[in-house]
Design a protein around this nucleic acid. Structure first.
Lengths: 234, 234
DNA sequence: ACAAAAGTGTTCCTAATACACCCATGA
DNA sequence: TCATGGGTGTATTAGGAACACTTTTGT
């Protein structure tokens, strides 16, 4: 095992470390990812994931949260470390290892920051089905993140991170249908979601043109039991 | 988003990047982890996970495989990236981000290399239940790895990485019982394992004091179906 | 009164679990 | 012949999936 000292003595370079974020939201009934158009080489004019270098005194998660806040203005979100990509060729500028994170944000809280910084030309939400060509290995990262999102949706309550404070059961179901890209059975879905014991009813209703829908919110307390599988095939 | 250039201009230091390995095996009916006694500061005389710095031209997985080979002499193993730990305080020498991997090795193939390198005093397999105090945040890493191992054992065929070429069904069951630390029902276990379609019978038997046991081996081809859950409670 | 979304139970089927005895061998 | 680990089948239960109608509201 080498030590930091012997490592330096041998003259190995240190590496650059970045975090990259796959930030998901649902807008207009589509699952979207936030991308930034690159204003300089490499991959100038390509779209890429938001991200940046990890600073010397911040943890990886702090770096990810900092980037997230810079790009979306949002602070409190579901954030999870995904995977670390370290192919030596993944960044033409040199050796850059990136720790990828995925985040779920409630679209009603987003205020996309189109900043005035010179190197940023544009920030945009792209439907997961209509992604442009991405720079670096970011397409791999997005694919990996989507896989993880779908997977976790099936057996955890992760999807709730995409919802506002109050929501109807139909809202959640539509969210799941959008992400999983399949139709779900209403009765089975409701049974499962409610059996998780994560939700509580409110006294409020959402009024529309038709029968008002009862609004739910998350329980503050922990759920009473974990569930085996959340799958709602029909 | 910062670029490598602006990053350098601002004078941020680059970071050290290591890989650390949680290498599991089963010896004497116990789940063991390979540890190395540190020969220098920091954490001199503490035990720690094998690992080392990632070199400038190797991928993360290559670095992990290189370390694995150095410590165990083994090359072909199950290896999976676990998690990346990057707390700024985790290494007193400076900022070191570590990508942890976990590996499963067949104990019959191990030849623990007690090297002559000056900084390595000792290499040893420790029972997971009797770990010494570990340096750095390696205890967290081991715990994380164990959790992942148990978890994956329940729904994948990962455990086979710990077995030799030929084995009996009882061998596998004992392996699972050791790792999961619970007794399993023989008939249910066999039903599940065989239903995975991962194994094929051989013509060989293991002779012992009692009725000879049929030896199995892995199929070369892919399994025909994935299974829901591997749980064998009695 | 009608259009549209909200809301609600039961049956079926598959998969997980619990459980006990006979078999083949070496000593 | 006996001690020991190898090997096998069935009944029960729980959870996932399929499925259709009534309710409530606004227009």
């Amino acid at each position: 095992m080498e030590t930091a000292e012997s490592y330096s003595k041998k003259g190995y370079e240190q590496l650059s470390v970045t975090v990259d974020l796959v930030i998901f939201t649902v807008i207009d009934n589509e699952l979207k990812v936030l991308l930034i158009k690159r204003g300089q080489e490499p991959f100038i004019d390509f779209w890429a994931l938001p991200g940046g270098f990890v600073r010397i005194n911040e943890s990886l998660e702090e770096a990810a949260l900092r980037e997230l806040k810079e790009e979306t203005g949002i602070q409190k979100v579901y954030l999870e470390q995904l995977y670390t990509f370290g192919n030596p060729k993944r960044d033409p500028r040199g050796r850059v290892v990136t720790i990828s994170y995925f985040a779920l944000v409630d679209s009603t809280k987003i205020k996309p920051v189109v900043t005035g910084e010179e190197q940023i030309k544009d920030v945009m939400w792209f439907s997961i089905n209509k992604l442009p060509k991405l720079g670096f290995d970011h397409e791999d990262i997005v694919k990996y993140a989507l896989k993880r999102l779908c997977y976790k949706l099936e057996y955890t309550a992760i999807g709730f991170g995409l919802l506002p404070e109050f929501f109807t059961l139909t809202d959640i179901q539509e969210l799941y249908e959008i992400i999983l890209n399949e139709k779900l059975d209403k009765r089975n879905f409701r049974k499962k979601i409610l059996s998780m014991n994560l939700l509580e009813t409110t006294k409020k209703y959402r009024k529309g043109q038709h029968r008002p829908a009862l609004l739910y919110k998350f329980k503050k307390i922990k759920p009473t039991h974990t569930f085996k599988k959340i799958r709602f095939e029909s």
